Simulated assay, not measured.
Amino acid sequence: MHLIEELAALRNPMPARGTVTPEDCYDDACEQVQEQRKEDAFALEAASDGLQTDPLLLTLDDLRAQRERVDAAVRVLLAYGREFHGGRPYGLEELGRRAGYSTSGVRTAYGEEEIRQVAEQLGRQANRPRKDTARSGR
Rank of each mutant, 00 (worst) to 15 (best):
E5W: 03
E5F: 02
E6I: 03
L7G: 06
L7N: 01
L10F: 06
R11E: 07
N12I: 04
V20P: 01
V20I: 15
V20C: 01
P22H: 04
P22G: 08
E23K: 14
C25Q: 15
C25T: 04
Y26K: 03
Y26R: 11
Y26L: 15
C30A: 10
C30Q: 10
E31Y: 07
Q32L: 12
Q32E: 13
V33P: 02
E35P: 00
E35K: 12
E35M: 03
Q36K: 14
E39C: 03
A41K: 07
A41E: 05
F42E: 15
A43M: 15
E45Q: 14
E45C: 04
A46I: 12
D49R: 10
G50K: 04
L51F: 04
D54F: 08
D54N: 15
P55M: 01
L56E: 07
T59Q: 10
D62L: 11
A65Q: 11
Q66D: 13
R69N: 10
D71G: 07
A73I: 03
V74A: 04
V74Q: 08
V76D: 14
A79G: 13
R82M: 10
R82E: 03
G86C: 05
G87T: 06
R88Q: 12
L92K: 02
L92H: 10
G96M: 08
G96I: 09
G96D: 06
R97N: 04
R98F: 08
R98W: 09
R98C: 08
A99R: 03
G100R: 13
Y101H: 14
Y101V: 01
T103Y: 01
S104W: 11
G105K: 06
R107W: 02
Y110A: 06
R116K: 13
Q117C: 07
Q117W: 03
A119V: 05
A119G: 13
A119Y: 03
Q121E: 15
L122T: 05
L122K: 09
G123C: 15
R124W: 02
K131R: 15
